[in-house]
Structure formats: structure tokens, C-alpha cells
Design a protein around this nucleic acid. Structure first.
Length: 470
RNA sequence: GGCGCCGUGGCGGAGUGGUUACGCAGAGGUCUGCAAAACCUUGUACACCGGUUCAAAUCCGGUCGGUGCCUCCA
């Protein structure tokens, strides 16, 4: 399969570093509030990457971090738990939003079972960060300042390595204004914090370096360098994130992770997803176009309709979220479900070879599209076409279930395990049919209404009644 | 200023140097107790201006517009 690698700015074949094993690290959320739909978009794409790499025949290992200590989490934890000890407050806040995040992930169909989630404040991560900072310091890549420990990009460059390979940033790119406004005590404007010493009221972890008492907390970038190495080893295969991570976050991760290594490669492929826009504009609270998943579900949309909406775009293009396009996604999801429900209904069964062949063809086209840099839009189009054709062609009784299983593996739309209706409901449909044949429209309509209340919609086709769950 | 992404029919949205993407919505028709679905027909899509070419929406250049990053950010 091919992926666009931000490092080379080209499509590249996925070639694992080790056998058939592909190790993926995804930058996860800062858990200080509900994720917004833009955040969730990025996770739908990275989840799809995990699914597709697996479907391509590789063994996937994936890790994702929780940034559970930073300015925002600390500020929020003070606001929400003003009486609590700072560390306790932080844990209360981040526990809450980790739970919310996991629930959102599951609601939109992301696989959370095959991902290792790691907290920045996990003791193992903390110790790893202290160790890495100390090692960087020992080799001259880090220096102690009044407010923390900084990474020296100058030292990194002097060691013969390239800083800025993802973003191609140069010193000239930093404006005069930024230099003048710089409030931190660092030697060069590019240098970034590895560790920040404690300010009043902040949660802090012990850290002693070269005789300095540096009780405080880690910087943002160091977390990912340590967690990815602890979980996956280094170098690993694929690093994912949003385009906003390219600089500075991933650039700095690479520098930290490779400063002490002969091989200056943190990960062989970097995959970055574009942002979601809402009504063609960046999401912002002031534009009132800032939504969470609950905002969507509270309007009656299925969370998986959001997934469909996201998958209808390509991850390297900005998705434009509009309510009208979410309507379209919801309708498509309903049609896909109606298709899946046909497997239970003999009147819709069709054992023709042509139908079996059309499944095989669609499957081939879907895999081809996904293996070509995750063309989810094209792939989903093929699936939708198959579902629409089933209205006239029916479904193949032996081939439909395997088809749905594979579709679920790739798209995560939960089509494969939809249950049949119960015996009472089946007999209601039969009674309704009898009533119709007797032209007892009042009774037949009444039965149809009753079924509808139970979430079963009945349609009359030339072959007989067909039901679908709403 | 530096580095990116993008501009496709009513709404979304792939893709491509010459051939229907697809989905959703709309109109007319067939079918139909009603409803729904399906099927048939239908809408003269590729921001603008130049250039290359037998042929460009697709390549090149420019213009305009949107959007993002430039140490909080999916």
C-alpha cells in the first residue's frame, strides 16, 4: 500500500522496518475538555490507517498518548477543582476527559481495543522523560535555564543533523516581532522547553539534574519522544498527527529522539491529516461553528453518520462540514444499514454468480482505493453503489456476510452484526401481508405503524415485504 | 514575509490529458391501496486569464478567492 510521507513529500510504498510488523504512533488529545469534531476527524483517519494497514496484511501495533499535563489542563483543573491539591485536581480533570474521549472514540466507531493508550504523567513515562532529558543534557543537547531545561537546536545542528526536515523551516522564518515578544529564558528563539520548573500552585514532579533542583513538569514534545520509544521502539514505522503538528511538535520530537542516535530517523513515515472546516471556515467559538460530538447527536444524528461524513473525504484535503452534508451522510448510512439487513430476508436473496462477482469486484476496487493513500471517499463510493444495487439485485445469501465483515474491518461502520427481527415481529409482517391481500388497509397500516414504533420499517416490493431497522 | 492545503454540478466529494465517479437532494415518468424503495429520463460540473497540445477541468505560468502552520492547537 502507498502513503503520502510528509518527510519526502511523496507517495511511498509502506515497507515495514521489521518483517510484517508496522508500528504506528498517533499524537493523541490534550484531555482538558470535550474533543471537537475537528479533533475527532483526525482520529477517524488514523483509525482508518490502522484498519487499512492491517487489511494490507501487516501486523499493526499502535500507541496513542494522552497529554494530561500542560498549561490548559492545569488551568482547567484549577477552575474545576479549586480546593484540591494541584496534582489531585489535575488527575480528577484528566480522568474525566479521558473517559469522555474514549466514549467519543467508540461512538464514532474507532477501534480503541487495539491501541495502547499512554498518559504523559504515567510514572514510567515520567521516568523516561527525566532519563532522556538527563542524557541529552550530558551530551550538550540540553541546557538548564531559570525556568526550565531547553533543547539546543544549535547543538543538534552542529552534531551534523538536520533540524526542520518536515517543515523545511529556517531561522529566517521567525519574525522580528516573535523574537521581541519571546518571554522565555532560552538561548535561541528556536529552542524549546524539555522541562518547565514549577510555578505557584502548579502540580510538579521531582527532577534533579546536574545539582539543580528542577521540580516541575515535562514539556509537550518530550512526552511523545519517550512514549513512542517505550511503546514501539525506535525507529518505528508510521507517525500520525494533524497538519498543525508538523511544526513545531513533530519537528521537535524528531530532534529529541535522534540527537543521541547514529540513525537520525525517529519514524520512517509521517502522515498528517488536514483540518476540518465548518461552513468553509475554521472552527472557532466566536464564529459559533464549534461543535462537539454531542452537539451532533443532540440534533438526532447518528455518531456513525459523522464517521461516514469524514470518510467521504480524503484525509489530505480539508473536509467541509455542513449540516446539509451530514444529512447526506446520515441518509447514506441508513441505506447501507438497509442493505445489511437484507441478509436476514429470504425474499431478497439472490444466488446468482453475477452478484457474487460484483461483490468480488467491489471488494477489489475498495481495497485498491484504500491502499492508494487511503482514498476513503472512492472506497466508500464503491460500497454505497453495491448497497444501492442490492435494491434490485438483492443480496447473495452466502457472500453478503463475509462482505459485511470486510466492510466493517475497513470502514468501521458496524454493518456486520445487525440482528434479525424477533418472531413476534416476523408474524406481524406476515399478518400484515395477509391483511393486505384481503385489502384490509386499516389493519395493514396499523401493523406497519406498530412495527415502526419498534424501529422496523416495512416496504412492499414486487417480491414481497422487506424490513429494515432504523 | 516563510512553509502548506485548496477552489469540481443544489449540497458534499473522488478522479483524470480524450471515456458515467460516487453519495445526498431536485424534476418528469413507470410501478403502487397508501407509504417507501427501485428502475427509466433529466440537469450542458470542473474559480478566472493566458500558454503547451490534435485534444485541458486534468500539464505550465499568472490572477483572484478560501483555509492552515510559523513554538497552545487534530
Amino acid at each position: 500500500m502507498k502513503l503520502y510521507n510528509t518527510l519526502s513529500r511523496k507517495l511511498e510504498n509502506v515497507v515495514p522496518l521489521s518483517g510484517k510488523n508496522v508500528r504506528i504512533y498517533s499524537c493523541g488529545p490534550t484531555v482538558y475538555d470535550h474533543a471537537h469534531i475537528g479533533n475527532l476527524t483526525a482520529y477517524v483517519y488514523s483509525d482508518t490507517l490502522q484498519r487499512v494497514v492491517g487489511a494490507a496484511g501487516f501486523n499493526v501495533t499502535r500507541a496513542m498518548n494522552y497529554t494530561d499535563v500542560d498549561d490548559k489542563t492545569i488551568r482547567r483543573s484549577h477552575e474545576q477543582f479549586p480546593q484540591a491539591d494541584p496534582k489531585v485536581a489535575l488527575t480528577l480533570l484528566t480522568d474525566k476527559y479521558i473517559a469522555v474521549f474514549l466514549e467519543d472514540m467508540q461512538r464514532i466507531g474507532n477501534d480503541t481495543k487495539h491501541v495502547t493508550f499512554i498518559r504523559a504523567t504515567d510514572p514510567k513515562t515520567m521516568q523516561g522523560m527525566r532519563d532522556l532529558i538527563a542524557a541529552l543534557h550530558a551530551k550538550g543537547f540540553a541546557y538548564v535555564a531559570d525556568d526550565g531545561v531547553y533543547f539546543s537546536i544549535d547543538a543538534y545542528r552542529k552534531s551534523g543533523k538536520v533540524y526542520g526536515q518536515l517543515s523545511e523551516i529556517t531561522a529566517a522564518d521567525t519574525s522580528e516581532e516573535r523574537i521581541q515578544n519571546d518571554e522565555y529564558d532560552k538561548e535561541s528563539v528556536h529552542d524549546f522547553a524539555l522541562w518547565k520548573t514549577q510555578k505557584d500552585g502548579e502540580p510538579a514532579w521531582d527532577f534533579t539534574l546536574d545539582g539543580h533542583d528542577l521540580k516541575g513538569r515535562p514539556g509537550w514534545h518530550i512526552e511523545c519522544s519517550v512514549m513512542s520509544r517505550q511503546a514501539l521502539g525506535q525507529p518505528f514505522d508510521i507517525h500520525t498527527g494533524g497538519v498543525d503538528h508538523i511544526f513545531p511538535h513533530h519537528e521537535n520530537e524528531i530532534a529529541q529522539s535522534t540527537a543521541l542516535e547514529a540513525n537520525p530517523v525517529m519514524a520512517t513515515v509521517f502522515v498528517h491529516s488536514e483540518h476540518m472546516l465548518v461552513d468553509g471556515r475554521k472552527m472557532s467559538k466566536s464564529l459559533q461553528n464549534f461543535y462537539t460530538l454531542s452537539d451532533i447527536t443532540n440534533k438526532g444524528y447518528d455518531p456513525l453518520a459523522f464517521r461516514v461524513k469524514v470518510l467521504q473525504s480524503h484525509y489530505r484535503n480539508s473536509v467541509n462540514f455542513t449540516w446539509e452534508s451530514l444529512d447526506a451522510a446520515q441518509n447514506l448510512l441508513t441505506n447501507l444499514r438497509a442493505w445489511a439487513d437484507l441478509k436476514h430476508q429470504k425474499t431478497a436473496h439472490n444466488t446468482s454468480d453475477e452478484l457474487a462477482e460484483s461483490y468480488a469486484n467491489a471488494l477489489r476496487a475498495i481495497r485498491e482505493a484504500l491502499f492508494d493513500d487511503l482514498n476513503t471517499s472512492l472506497a466508500l463510493g464503491h460500497l454505497a453503489q453495491l448497497a444501492n444495487e442490492s435494491e434490485t439485485l438483492g443480496v447473495h445469501p452466502e457472500k453478503i456476510q463475509p462482505m459485511l465483515n470486510i466492510a466493517d474491518q475497513l470502514f468501521g461502520l458496524q454493518l456486520s452484526e445487525r440482528p434479525t427481527i424477533n418472531d413476534t415481529q416476523k408474524s406481524m409482517i406476515a399478518k400484515r401481508q395477509t391483511a393486505r391481500e384481503a385489502k384490509n388497509w386499516a389493519k395493514s397500516d396499523q401493523l406497519r405503524d406498530q412495527l415502526k414504533e419498534q424501529g422496523i420499517i416495512v416496504r412492499d416490493t414486487t417480491n414481497g415485504p422487506i424490513w429494515q431497522r432504523t
